[in-house]
């Protein structure tokens, strides 16, 4: 309960911070919605010309793209430092979080909010509405699927960024892995053969961020829900374990820093 209170207080402070510059906040949020909408036109054009990809149509694409956008948005909005964790580690900035009596990983991740994340999150629901599949039930399933997809995405980023404990600066690898995860999540899963699908459920779990949550949103199945939960729990557990293992190797110059 205390941790939840602490998280809520952090998020409130972050929100106040990003909303200090109202015009910038609104520009970023609306700009991101516009950005995603324009990007999605590629798929509209594609499916106008080619109808479907091995049975995967524009409706599936709206939902898949929407889930991925909302999950991405949720992570950048609530756990914005997930994208910078590697930098925080290599620059010795974990010192600050280690010196406080709060869970280190959670505190570090939730200490930053990216305003455009709200635009991404909202866009997901617009995309669901555009798919023509929006009902109160599908909206609820979409919300649950987005939460689980966000857990998988955040866990994957923590895993990749934690490599900084062993490798030092790993920016290139982090960029490649993050881009691969997002790219594979927003492409039709029917493109891939079985070997590629195994990779997309394990090494780069993009299927757990796009296709599978989308399938759950479109039609409820206990099995899909179970797979999503299992994926989220396993990846989160693994991410926490790897981070904790890395933390034991962590060293810094003990620089005194002030977090503003």
């Amino acid at each position: 309960m205390n941790t939840l209170k602490f998280l809520l207080a952090l998020w409130k402070a972050n929100l106040q911070s990003v909303m200090e510059y109202r015009a910038s906040f609104l520009t970023q949020m609306l700009g991101m919605i516009l950005n995603n909408s324009i990007y999605f036109l590629v798929w509209v054009i594609f499916f106008e010309r080619f109808d479907n990809v091995n049975g995967w149509g524009i409706g599936d694409m709206y939902v898949t793209f929407g889930i991925a956008a909302s999950a991405f948005g949720l992570v950048s909005l609530l756990f914005g430092n997930t994208f910078n964790l590697g930098d925080i580690i290599t620059r010795g900035r974990l010192d600050y979080y280690l010196s406080l009596p709060k869970p280190v990983l959670l505190h570090a991740l939730a200490s930053r909010s990216t305003a455009s994340g709200l635009g991404d999150f909202a866009y997901g629901y617009l995309s669901l509405a555009a798919s023509g599949l929006m009902t109160p039930q599908s909206a609820l399933r979409f919300t649950l699927a987005t939460l689980l997809a966000a857990v998988v995405f955040a866990s994957f980023l923590i895993l990749v960024q934690s490599l900084a404990f062993w490798m030092g600066s790993s920016n290139s690898l982090v960029n490649i892995a993050t881009n691969a995860m997002i790219t594979f999540a927003i492409y039709p899963i029917t493109l891939f053969d079985n070997t590629a699908k195994v990779i997309l459920f394990t090494l780069i779990p993009a299927a757990l961020m796009g296709a599978l949550p989308a399938s759950f949103t479109i039609s409820f199945q206990w099995q899909t829900l179970g797979q999503l939960f299992l994926g989220a729990v396993l990846f989160l557990g693994l991410a926490i374990l790897v981070f904790q293992a890395g933390l034991r190797r962590y060293e810094s110059g003990s620089g005194i820093q002030v977090e503003v």
Binding site: T27, G31, M32, L41, S116
Partner: peptide, 18 residues
């Protein structure tokens, strides 16, 4: 003239995509 150019950058990039 504006505080943040990110939105223009994104839109330019996506217009170039399309």
């Amino acid at each position: 003239v504006v505080e943040d150019i990110s939105a223009f950058q994104w839109v330019y990039q996506k217009l170039a995509f399309i």
